[in-house]
Design a protein around this nucleic acid. Structure first.
Lengths: 217, 217
DNA sequence: TTTTCCCTTACGTGAAACACGTAATTGCAT
DNA sequence: ATGCAATTACGTGTTTCACGTAAGGGAAAA
């Protein structure tokens, strides 16, 4: 018997995924959840084998969720379901500690296959993902420390504050006034951000901030 | 009997949604599809009452899909399912011709309710959405021409070309060289873009370009 | 047909932002 | 204690932005 938890921000999709698994005799859905903090809380007191996590967007929040769950529930295997399947993003979830990834080519059978595979202690990536990762060394990635930089922790809080305001179209002058610092300092912070993240232009910086949910589109 | 088509780019979610509707006696799922062009083609030769469209992102592509389906199949009612529920986005889908919107607070019952409501010729918006739209005049919006500007057509092709390169972190100088024009002209184009779209900063311009799929994140 | 409107091209000028380097102070961690 | 990163800030030169002006071309409307 495999005990499953499912998380999806969209109730409808959550219900859909639940129903897909409801007929299987050796799979038991223990928890079906659309709230992040409820999920974290409940998982602490439960012995779940596999968590199915539908990620609508790859944000720092979501990646951190994976990292934290891996710490608080080391036995839990996390299976990512997502339409997003760029190489970068798959790698990030794996680094964060996910044990499987189902891209948008996956169907119900892949889902079941993935659950059994994860339960048996192995990893599962759907075909399109495996193809993506062919030239990468997944194992070497996984050998790294989970807490290693995946861009998540690399910006300081001050840098994020400034990036946030700038991402809301504040001018350097306005940011400087807001924080009672010099315009030159604001420039410095931005320079440091770009150096640190190896960004080539401010356009890249906007993209980075959006990708990491620091600013909203 | 209500004939339904379901579209979702993610097979797994598609299957989930299908299963949610499979037990209902007066609902018949005619088409279950994860490919945009297949969907467009098949809908032409079918008499579908309600199309359930799961939008993972609100792009020009997706909005145009709605517009086009409304033209090619005027009787078809389009029901949007999406985790994205910002006011702007809901308004855009309504402008494009969607007849219903299920936000992430919706469950199976809302889905059924929405389908019946749409079949009866009325619109359906889930609670969170209705709340969003309280102060807006949905009806007046809908009275407008579907082809009215939703920002999609307002930029000239030259302006888009320049926006694209700039969105890939090209400098004005590089863009100028690429097109054999002066740097000042590139600046002019950007000025005109910002004036036309009433953007306050380049950050806004990046966001605009991303929202409208002119540049990739 | 002439007028009107938008697109594309381009410049002038002053302000703001960027690139790159340097550097002092603070605070945390090894 | 010593090192490393964060925060603050400036110098200097280049690039981009903001706003105005403007000429030439083409398409559509009057």
């Amino acid at each position: 018997m495999i005990d499953i938890a499912i998380f999806d921000e969209h109730k409808l999709v959550l219900d859909g995924l639940s129903v897909l698994l409801s007929g299987i005799s050796d799979i038991r859905i223990i928890l079906s959840c659309d709230n992040r903090s409820v999920l974290t809380e409940k998982l602490k007191s439960m012995q779940i084998h596999v968590l199915i996590l539908n990620m609508h967007d790859i944000s720092v929040r979501n990646l951190n969720l994976i990292v934290q769950l891996n710490i608080s529930s080391p036995k839990l295997k996390i299976l990512i379901v997502s339409v997003i399947d760029s190489e970068e993003i798959v790698l990030k979830t794996i680094k964060a500690g996910a044990k499987g990834f189902l891209g948008k080519d996956s169907d119900r059978n892949s889902l079941l296959e993935a659950i059994y595979t994860l339960r048996n202690g192995h990893d599962y990536y759907s075909k399109s993902i495996t193809h993506l990762l062919l030239n990468r060394y997944i194992s070497s990635l996984k050998a790294d420390d989970v807490n290693q930089n995946t861009d998540m922790t690399s910006l300081s809080s001050r840098q994020i504050e400034i990036l946030k305001l700038w991402g809301e179209s504040y001018t350097n002058q306005e940011i400087a006034e807001r924080f009672f610092i010099s315009v030159r300092t604001v420039e410095s912070h931005k320079n440091h951000i770009m150096q640190k993240l190896n960004l080539k232009s401010t356009v890249d910086m906007v993209k980075y901030a959006i990708k990491n949910n620091i600013i909203e589109i």
